[in-house]
Computed example of a mutant assay.
Amino acid sequence: MTSSPEESTDSLILHSTDNAVSWITLNRPQAMNAVTWDQREKLIALLAAASADPEVRAVVITATGKGFCAGADLRGTPTDGRERIPGDVARTIRLGAQRLIGAVLDCEKPVIAAVNGTAAGIGAHLAFACDLVLAAEEAKFIEVFVRRGLVPDGGGAYLLARLVGPQRAKELMFFGDSLPAAEAERIGLVNHVLPAQELAKTAREWALRLAAGPTRAIALTKQLVNASLDADRAAAFAAEAAAQEINMTTRDANEGVASFVERRTPQYRGL
Rank of each mutant, 00 (worst) to 15 (best):
W206C: 13
L47V: 03
V56E: 07
A127C: 13
L224G: 02
D38V: 01
G154T: 08
A236Q: 11
D252Q: 12
Q98E: 15
L46C: 04
V111L: 11
E205T: 09
R75I: 01
L229F: 10
A52I: 02
L150R: 14
A63Y: 03
A217I: 05
W37L: 00
R147C: 04
R263Y: 04
K201D: 12
V59E: 05
G121P: 02
M173H: 03
V89D: 02
S4A: 10
L47P: 02
G154L: 10
A207P: 03
V193Y: 03
S4C: 05
R204Y: 01
N226I: 12
G102N: 12
A113E: 07
P78D: 05
A241P: 00
R209W: 03
N191Y: 10
S8I: 02
R204H: 06
I187A: 04
E198N: 02
T202V: 07
V115Y: 03
Y158A: 14
T265G: 04
G87M: 10
D177K: 04
T221S: 12
L208I: 08
P195R: 07
A253E: 11
L229K: 09
A207L: 07
R148A: 14
L229G: 11
D177Q: 08
V225E: 08
D153V: 03
Q223A: 10
S4L: 15
G96R: 00
E41T: 09
A238N: 10
G123F: 01
N254E: 09
F68Q: 07
L159N: 03
K222F: 00
D106A: 15
L210K: 13
H125G: 05
K222Q: 14
I112G: 03
S178W: 04
A235C: 01
I112L: 13
R75E: 11
Y158H: 14
T215W: 04
A231Y: 11
P54H: 02
K201W: 00
A72S: 08
R186M: 06
G117H: 10
A169E: 11
T17L: 06
D177A: 06
H15C: 12
A49E: 13
V261R: 11
R148S: 11
V56I: 15
A70G: 14
G121N: 12
E138G: 13
R94E: 14
F141N: 04
M248S: 12
P180T: 10
I93D: 05
P78W: 00
F128N: 02
R99T: 07
